[in-house]
Amino acid sequence: MTTGMSWDVAVIGAGIIGAACAWRLAERGLKVVVLEQGSPAGGSTGKSAAGVRAQFTSATNILLSKHSIEEYASMPEAGYHPGGYLLLVPETQWPSYQVGVDLQQRLGVPTERLTPTEAQVHAEFLPDGLGGCTYCGTDGHVDAHGLTMAYVNRARALGARFLLDTRVTGIQRFSETWQLTTSAGRVEAPLLVNSSGAWSGEVGALAGLEIPVQPARRMVFTTGPLKLPRPLPMIFDLESGVWLRSEGERIILGRADPADVGWREGMEWNWLEPTLEAAITRFPWLEMASLDRRASWWGYYEVTPDHQAIVGQMPGVEGWLNACGFSGHGVMHAAAIARVIAQEALGETPFIDLSPLRFERFERVPQGLIDIQV
């Protein structure tokens, strides 16, 4: 059977990226069908720590976050909390990192340079080895699940159809149309948006495409209640890779394990000890914290070789748009990504330069600064 309608665009994945794209595409008058193997925000989106920041080192990423955060701030459903991001930068990285701060400020992001002593107003930490700190008060976090459902509801109100619990098992191009074999029947559309998160590489393989996205498991550890003098912003220690922030009376924290790639499931409790050791070195007061194992969780990042997203038209493949591989930046960038994907779909020039994120970059030698991954 088929879905009974002809569609202009098929979006694969109903995480925050796919849901936002569905809304913006429907807003432009396109007939949109979304195929989701589970439920909206049921994958990486719902397991995200939901941080949003514009403290990047490339103009494209800065602008994607800046415009997205502005949209979230206008949406009550987003639960946008501008609690700030505080970055602790080692001496060796401080001179080059200031180039990124200058760029952020030129683009209208209110990032501040702080000495380690000045930064103590936001959190208590040991300053050993730091060259400086940066803080942006418009960074913060959102309710990723509530935000995704808001996009789903907006897309549905404009006629988009969401086929949930529907797995895509085959993708072929016939003439000017993509034909998708799914557990709900056949779906056809001339345009396809691959926004399937950690599964994006597998979705590409269904069409015979090599899209370099793979899953990487991430742990989020949650403490018991702590009495702190003030809520903590999202803090990222660039030296150790540890991040943490307040979540009510608790602290959530994590640290990427670069070896934890592939389809691994469940909490990796062996990663707790090295994470805490690195965290306590910078934040000795964490020694007083207890751990709430039941409140801790895990999820997948969708990572690419350079830890940057793949966005836009797939070269040499008519009607295939990528919006995947965000490597932990999906919630931060979703709102703006949806706008540029809609522009790409209609043959318009995106309002943000996508060239650093296009697939073609894998054919070039990468240059420039690599943005941090948290």
Rank of each mutant, 00 (worst) to 15 (best):
G325N: 12
Y72Q: 06
L228V: 05
V374E: 14
M332P: 00
L238W: 02
P229I: 02
R161E: 13
D128E: 15
E27N: 14
H307F: 13
D8W: 00
A22G: 05
I62D: 03
R106Q: 15
L164E: 00
E363A: 15
W178H: 08
V9F: 05
V101G: 07
L63P: 06
D260F: 10
I310Y: 03
Q172F: 05
I69D: 10
L192A: 09
L272S: 04
P110K: 07
R106F: 07
G108V: 10
Q37E: 14
Q373E: 14
Q373S: 11
G368E: 02
L244F: 05
G185K: 10
L103S: 08
R161H: 08
G83Y: 00
L191I: 00
G18S: 09
W178Q: 04
T281Y: 09
A259M: 01
L63K: 08
G254R: 07
L130Y: 05
T117C: 06
L228Y: 07
W271D: 08
A345S: 00
F174Y: 06
P40D: 13
L232I: 10
V52P: 07
A20T: 14
L286F: 01
L228C: 04
E239A: 15
I211H: 07
L130A: 09
H122R: 14
L346S: 08
T304D: 08
E302V: 04
T134C: 13
M332W: 02
A157E: 13
E71N: 11
V109H: 05
L226D: 00
I12E: 03
R173P: 04
S68M: 06
V32C: 02
P315Q: 03
S44N: 11
T60Q: 13
E118R: 12
G254V: 01
M149Y: 15
W7C: 06
E273V: 01
Y135A: 11
A14T: 00
R364S: 10
F125Q: 02
V99K: 13
G131I: 10
V213H: 01
